[in-house]
Write a protein that binds this DNA or RNA. Structure first.
Lengths: 343, 343
DNA sequence: CTGAAAGCGCTAACAC
DNA sequence: GTGTTAGCGCTTTCAG
C-alpha cells in the first residue's frame, strides 16, 4: 500500500519466516528448499506484491535483463516506415516469453553511435540485434568483436556477420526477374537500390543471375537510391538509354511507384508496353495504378527469428545464420498467372 | 583491452591518484573538486575507457536511467503500421539529448499487461509514455495513480489523463467537414472509427460540430472500425441508407480506401458524385484513385512532445497537456482549393 | 536443506 | 576540497 518504500526480498523473508537466501532461492526457483518454506515464501510474495528490483539483480548477477534492438543509419527517416515497427512486433513476440526487456536505440547521431559503441564494449545489455547498416559501418566490425552476443538483421555489404538473419533478397530478385521472363519479356531492365546496402547489391545479383540463366542481356541497369523520386529519375534515364525495354525489375516498391509515374507520363502502358515488378510489398503496392506485382518478405518473422537467435546465443549455444524466403505477389503490373516461392 | 574484468570507478580513481568519491564527483560533474584532480580523473577515464555501470548507479540512486514507451492494445498488428515507428523516432530525438535509454513494451498479451502493471507499481523505469488505449483499459487508471511519472499519448474515451499530448482529432475532423461544406456539399455523411477509442469519438464530434455550425444534417452516420474492409462495409451501408449523400468524411484513410472501392463499384464518381476526405495522411493516400484528401497529423511531434513532457515531469515541474494541430491535405478526392489549419 | 556473510559498482552523507 | 564510510537490494559462496 505504501509506495514510499518498495517491498524488498527481506520483507518477503521476514513475512514468510525464512532467511533471505531461502526466499531468494524460491524466487529464482533454485533447488534445496523444502516445500513448506517454498509455499510460505510464495504466499508472502503474493501478499506483499513483491517484485524483484531489476537493478539490484543486474548488479549482483552481472546480467542486465535487457536486450537492445539497434538501428544504425544516417537518416532517422529510414525508421519511419512500417518496416521497423514490424520488426519490433516480431521481436517482442518472442521476448514476451522471457523476462527480458527490449531497449531500442536509433543510432543516427554521433551521440547515438557513441552510445551504441559503449554498449558493445561495456556489456550494458545481454544481447544486441543490429539492423540496416549502410556500407562499411564501423559499428558492424565493432559488433563482431564485441563481448556481447550480437545478431545482425540483414547483411552489410562486404561483410558476412557470424550470426544473422536476412531475407532472401537475391532469391526474391531472381523470382521477380524469372517472372518477367515467364510472361514473355526479353528486354528486362532493372532499377537497383543503393549499392552500399546489402539489400541493394543482393537484389541486383539476383536480377543478373536470372537473366544469365536465360541467356538474356542484363545490361539495362540504372542505379537508384530506394526513394520514390530516385525511382522516377532512374526510370527516365532507363527510358532514354534503353527505349526498347519491355519490363523492369525495380528493387523497391517506393522506387517502383516513382517509376510507374514516369512510365505513365511517357505514355507507356503497364503492363502492356512495360511490365513492372517491385520489392517489399508495402501497403501502398496494392493501390497503385496498376496494382504492383512485387516480392514480399516476412518482416515480422525477421524480427522473430533475430530474437530467437539471440536467445540461443545467450544460452551458450551456437545458432546458424538464417535466410528467410520471399515470395512473389502477383498483381496487375505484370500479366501472367504464375506463382512461385524462393528458397 | 581485457574484456574479462570491466573498468570500474576504483580503477579510474587509482589511476588518477585520487579517492573514489573524488572520481565519482568528477563523473557526475558535481562541485568540490580541484581543477587539477578533475583533469587527472578525466584523463584516467579516457585512458581506461571507463563507462559507468548503469545497474550499480541505478541501485545506488534509485533511478533507473530508462523510460518506457508502452503500447497497450489487444491486437499486436496495431503496431505494425508506420504510426508507431514515427512516434519512436520523435521520442528518440529528444531522449538522445539525455542519458536515458528507451524501452519499448507492447502490452498485448496478458503477460505484457502484467509486466506493464508491475512496472507502474514498482518503479522499474523513470517514466512511462502510454499510448493508444482502447476503451476502458484498466492500465489507464492504474497509470494515473502510479508513483512513476506517466504521460499519455492520445486520450482514452471517458477519461482525461492529467498529462497527455494528443493530436487535435476533433479540430481535424471539423476541418475536414468544413472543407466539404466549402466545396459546396450539403448532404455530408461520415464513417466513424471505433467508438471505444478516443480518436474515434473525437473525430465524430468534430464532424457533428462542423455541421451544427452550418445548420446541416449530421444524421448520415455509420460506425466503422478503422479497417479497410470495415470502411467498405460502412460505405455500402451508407449508400443504402442515404442514397442522396454527396460527400463523406471517413475517420481514417484505411477506411477511406475501402470506401473508395465500394464507391467505384457502385458506379459513383469521386469527387463528382461523392467527395471523400480521410484522416491520417498515410503514405498510400497520395496513390489512391483518386488521391485522397485527408487530415495530416504530426505523429513525430507527438512522440517528441511526449518525451519532452515526461522529462519536465521527472524534473519535478508540472507541464500542461498538449494538443497538436492537424492540417488539411488537399488532393483529388475533393475539388475546391481551400487550405486551412486546425488549432 | 538452511542461514550467515561477503560482495556486485556506485553514490551520498559525513567528518576532516 | 577531500577521503572514509555505509549502504542501495540482490545473489552466491560457504559452513553448518
Amino acid at each position: 500500500m505504501n509506495p514510499r518504500r518498495p517491498v524488498t526480498l527481506d520483507d518477503v523473508a521476514r513475512r514468510a519466516g525464512v532467511s533471505r537466501s531461502a526466499a531468494s532461492r524460491v524466487i529464482n526457483n533454485a533447488p534445496h528448499v523444502s516445500k513448506a518454506k517454498r509455499d510460505a515464501v510464495l504466499r508472502a510474495v503474493q501478499d506483499l506484491g513483491y517484485v524483484p528490483n531489476a537493478s539490484a539483480r543486474a548488479l549482483a548477477t552481472n546480467q542486465v535483463g535487457a536486450v537492445v534492438l539497434a538501428l544504425s543509419a544516417e537518416d532517422p527517416q529510414v525508421f519511419a516506415g512500417p518496416f521497423f515497427a514490424e520488426v519490433i512486433v516480431g521481436v517482442t513476440s518472442v521476448l514476451e516469453e522471457t523476462d527480458l526487456e527490449l531497449m531500442v536505440m536509433l543510432a543516427t547521431s554521433a551521440r547515438g553511435q557513441t552510445r551504441l559503441e559503449q554498449l558493445l564494449r561495456t556489456r550494458q545489455a545481454d544481447g544486441v540485434m543490429l539492423m540496416s547498416m549502410h556500407g562499411d559501418d564501423p559499428i558492424a566490425r565493432l559488433a563482431e568483436q564485441s563481448d556481447v552476443p550480437v545478431v545482425f538483421g540483414g547483411r552489410p555489404v562486404n561483410f558476412e556477420p557470424r550470426y544473422y538473419v536476412d531475407a532472401d533478397n537475391r532469391g526474391g530478385a531472381r523470382l521477380a526477374t524469372e517472372h518477367l521472363v515467364a510472361i514473355g519479356r526479353r528486354r528486362i531492365a532493372t532499377i537497383t537500390g543503393r549499392m552500399d546496402e546489402g539489400a541493394g547489391t543482393a537484389r541486383y545479383k539476383g536480377y543478373q543471375e536470372a537473366l544469365a540463366v536465360e541467356g538474356l542481356d542484363a545490361g539495362r541497369v540504372v542505379h537508384g537510391d530506394f526513394t520514390e523520386d530516385g525511382g522516377g529519375r532512374a526510370m527516365a534515364e532507363l527510358l532514354a538509354r534503353h527505349p526498347d525495354l519491355d519490363a523492369v525489375f525495380v528493387a523497391s516498391d517506393q522506387m517502383a511507384i516513382g517509376a510507374l509515374r514516369v512510365l505513365k507520363d511517357a505514355g507507356k502502358s503497364v503492363p502492356g508496353d512495360v511490365a513492372v515488378v517491385g520489392f517489399n510489398d508495402i501497403a501502398t503496392a496494392r493501390h497503385t495504378a496498376p496494382p504492383l506485382t512485387t516480392i514480399s518478405q516476412p518482416i515480422q518473422s525477421l524480427g522473430h527469428e533475430m530474437a530467437r537467435m539471440l536467445l540461443t546465443l545467450t544460452s551458450g549455444e551456437t545458432p546458424s545464420p538464417l535466410i528467410l524466403p520471399t515470395r512473389l505477389v502477383q498483381r496487375a503490373s505484370t500479366t501472367s498467372t504464375v506463382t512461385a516461392c524462393s528458397a
